[in-house]
């Protein structure tokens, strides 16, 4: 980890980031944080996800890969109950975070989403200032008692997201005025400002250019130190670069899940092999 170049000086020389995930593959022995058991999702009559069982480790990056429509995003959205907002969607089975079933009627989905942050495919900062973007979460959850507390949370979050040095002179300007990559890092800062336990990322780099992608990937690798991260990606190279564990979804089922190196070099299932080698998808 020591040889990592400073994010803010990386510039354009850092087009091809080192595959940190491969280097760091040894320490995947974190405790299990998220447990999915027999998770099925129905959109009306159609079953989009069939009986998924998975354990997701803390302080590591788990990548969900698979062709379009395979259910990986659907499963990701089960982890913070974003599927609640789709009238026709129905979830069965259980998802436990730290041993608590988040589909228990006593669980408040609003508080759950403060504990399970999410970063979306398209950067979606609020049309407000950079400061207000980051401060919004802590404000609605009452995490800061004073203005200086809030300032500290905002600055720390921006620093963790590797954005602070770039925006510190225009922190009160609109977040929508940033470049695409900066906007996405702002969204990450916004997600980590409420200090979640799990961060879900739904194809966070698909709308970004390669340089911005590289910076986000480095950031994800850094955040792994403190958070349990789940990332959905279409890019198998990205999965190989940033994740320690990989889950392959196909036609609504979880085909195979394991250490990223295993999945990419020695998959147990032939469907995984076919997808990884580009025979379909």
């Amino acid at each position: 980890m020591n040889e990592r170049p400073n994010l803010n000086q990386a510039g354009f020389g850092n087009l091809a980031p080192a595959p940190k995930g491969l280097l760091a593959r040894g320490d995947t022995s974190g405790r299990i944080r998220v447990v999915g058991r027999s998770v099925s999702v129905f959109y009306g009559e159609k079953q989009a996800l069939i009986d998924v069982n998975i354990d997701i480790l803390d302080k590591s990056v788990t990548a969900f890969i698979g062709p379009s429509g395979c259910g990986k995003s659907t499963f990701l959205r089960c982890l913070n109950r974003m599927n609640d907002f789709i009238d026709a969607a129905r979830v069965t089975g259980s998802v436990e975070i730290d041993g608590v079933n988040i589909y228990d009627p006593e669980i408040d989905p609003v508080q759950l989403r403060a504990r399970v942050g999410m970063v979306f495919q398209k950067p979606n900062p609020f049309p407000k200032s950079i400061y207000d973007n980051v401060a919004y979460g802590p404000r609605i959850h009452g995490l800061a008692r004073t203005k200086s507390d809030m300032d500290e949370i905002v600055i720390t979050s921006l620093e963790k997201a590797g954005l602070y040095k770039e925006v510190k002179d225009r922190i009160l300007e609109a977040g929508t005025g940033l470049s695409g990559g900066q906007q996405q890092r702002l969204c990450i800062a916004r997600a980590i400002a409420v200090n979640p336990e799990v961060i879900l990322m739904d194809e966070p780099c698909s709308a970004l250019d390669p340089i911005a992608t590289a910076r986000i990937e480095e950031l994800i690798d850094e955040l792994r130190q403190n958070f349990c991260i789940v990332i959905v990606t279409h890019s198998m190279q990205q999965a190989a670069r940033v994740s320690q564990r990989t889950a392959f979804f196909h036609l609504g089922t979880l085909v195979e899940e394991g250490e990223t190196s295993e999945i990419f070099t020695n998959p147990r299932q032939s469907r995984t092999q076919d997808y990884i080698t580009g025979r379909f998808g």
């Binding site: 907002f85 504990r115 942050g117 609020f126 959850h141 916004r190």
Partner: peptide
Amino acid sequence: SVREAALGIGAS
């Protein structure tokens, strides 16, 4: 996306 962003950080 604006609604999702707000819901995603736990806004009611």
